[in-house]
Amino acid sequence: MATVLAAGTLPWRRRRGRLQVALVHRPRYDDWSWAKGKLDRGETFPVAGVRETLEETGLRVRLGHPLPTTTYTVASGSGRAVKEVRYWAAEVTGGDGGLVHEIDEVAWLEADEALERLTYAHDRAQMDALVAADASGTLTTWPLAILRHAKARSRSSWDDDDWLRPLDDQGRAQAADLVPLLAGYGIERLVSSPSTRASDTLAPYATATGGRLRLKPGLSEEGYAQDPSRAGHHLDRLLERGVPACLCSHGPVLPDLVNRLLARVDPRLAPGLVARSVIEDVASSGLAKGEVLVAHIVGTGEGARVVAAERHHPLDRG
């Protein structure tokens, strides 16, 4: 049976201290559900979720931690297909609320009202998870992305200093693909190894957003070999700031950074159990070139704790 890939969000806000979520109504089906839609060709799940939310609700959102994925059977041209929809909690950051596509109404409802109005039982798991996160104090998070530089020219084909080795064609495509992905999480602060293959991985995002790219020698392979403590220092500084950030480095440096994040997972928080699994997997298998680990964090400094995590591979797309 064929699989249809889709993504969506639960846009949320607070009014008079009360949590509200946005449901959409489709007149074609006369149903109430979450903003969602199919992945375009070559699109990643998070990018699709942000795009579909804007197209269906007119709202701009910043992705928070992931919510339960749902699967169900739908009609397709070949008969039946399994539809897989991945969801995120999404804090509203702007937008005019203008309705387009097949949506004729967006309703902001409190949790109990939303559960009653949802048409499909399979949409309730996301609402339950959102409410649980809110109750545990882990709904409001900020993202810290750990990125391995995109694919570069091989060492054997490069005669100059290794730190000057540039991205190849595939690497440049990966760097371009990172622009909408990082934008979906509202990344603001950019920190990178000064090696060309690392800084050029984040350069397109810096250009697109007008952000400043901060180059730190301690994140390079050469700098890490001289003083391994510097890489951890740069990570700690980002944790102190608590600003949505991306740190780009190299394969030999990443295990130290990932293990530092692993130590920040709070086992007392239910979402933290999933976060630990994701980060442990990255710690053991590493990140592919151009792949990003997104840690969702509550608090700052010594009190910063990872409550959810996800990884996105440049080939993990529709």
Rank of each mutant, 00 (worst) to 15 (best):
Arg41Cys: 01
Ala175Glu: 06
Arg276Asp: 09
Ala35Ser: 15
Asp227Phe: 00
Val253Lys: 01
Ser136Asn: 09
Glu240Thr: 11
Gly97Cys: 00
Gly184Arg: 07
Gln170Cys: 00
Leu167Pro: 03
Ser220Gln: 08
Val306Tyr: 08
Trp142Ser: 02
Pro166His: 05
Val106Thr: 12
Ala125Met: 10
Asp162Gly: 01
Ala6Gln: 04
Ala231Glu: 02
Gly37Leu: 09
Glu291Ser: 13
Glu56Asn: 13
Lys38Trp: 01
Leu257His: 02
Arg28Gly: 14
Ala133Thr: 10
Lys38Ile: 09
Trp158Ile: 04
Glu280Arg: 15
Leu164Asn: 12
Val85Arg: 09
Thr73Pro: 07
Asp227Cys: 08
Arg41Gln: 14
Val191Arg: 12
Thr209Pro: 04
Asp161Pro: 14
Ala35Tyr: 00
Gly211Trp: 05
Pro252Phe: 10
Thr53His: 02
Glu84Val: 14
Ala89Trp: 02
Gly64Met: 08
Gly211Asp: 06
Gln174Lys: 09
His313Glu: 11
Arg189Thr: 13
Trp142Phe: 01
Leu215Phe: 10
Asp128Met: 12
Ser199Cys: 10
Thr93Trp: 08
Glu291His: 03
Arg86Gly: 08
Lys83His: 00
Ile187Gly: 00
Ala114Phe: 07
Gly251His: 11
Arg241Val: 05
Gln174Asp: 10
His296Val: 08
Val274Glu: 14
Gly301Ile: 07
Gly272Ile: 02
Pro180Trp: 12
Pro271Gly: 03
Gly286Arg: 06
Gly17Arg: 02
Ala309Met: 09
Leu202Cys: 07
Phe45Arg: 10
Glu240Met: 03
Pro255Leu: 00
Val131Asn: 00
Val21His: 03
Tyr185Pro: 01
Leu287Trp: 06
Gly210His: 13
Val82Thr: 15
Val282Gln: 09
Gly223Met: 02
Ala111Phe: 03
Ala295Trp: 07
Cys246Gln: 08
Arg41Leu: 13
Ala208Asp: 08
Leu235Tyr: 05
Leu239Thr: 02
Arg153Ile: 11
Thr141Asp: 05
Val50Asp: 01
Thr69Leu: 14
Val258Trp: 06
Gly211Tyr: 04
Val243Cys: 03
Ile297His: 00
Ser192Tyr: 11
Phe45Asp: 13
His234Trp: 15
Leu10Thr: 15
Leu293Trp: 09
Ala121Leu: 13
Val292Ile: 12
His25Leu: 09
Glu91Asp: 12
Gly290Glu: 08
Ile103Leu: 08
Pro11Ser: 10
Ser154Met: 05
Gly97Asp: 07
Arg86Asn: 11
Gly186Met: 07
Leu144Asn: 06
Ala295Gln: 05
Pro166Ser: 04
Leu54Cys: 04
Tyr29Ile: 11
Arg86Asp: 09
Glu105Cys: 08
Asp169Asn: 13
Asp161Gln: 14
Asp169Pro: 06
Trp142Asp: 02
Trp108Lys: 03
Ala176Lys: 11
Asp40Glu: 15
Thr70Leu: 00
Ala304Phe: 07
Lys38Asp: 14
Ala6Asp: 06
Leu147Asn: 12
Asp128Ala: 15
Asp134Val: 07
Arg172Leu: 01
Arg41Met: 03
Thr53Trp: 02
Leu261Ser: 02
Val278Gly: 04
Gln20Trp: 06
Ala90Trp: 05
Pro194Ile: 08
Ala90His: 08
Gly184Ile: 00
Glu56Tyr: 12
Pro46His: 04
Val131Glu: 13
His65Glu: 12
Cys246Gly: 10
Ile187Ala: 08
Arg214Phe: 02
Val278Cys: 03
Thr201Lys: 13
Ser192Thr: 14
Cys246Met: 11
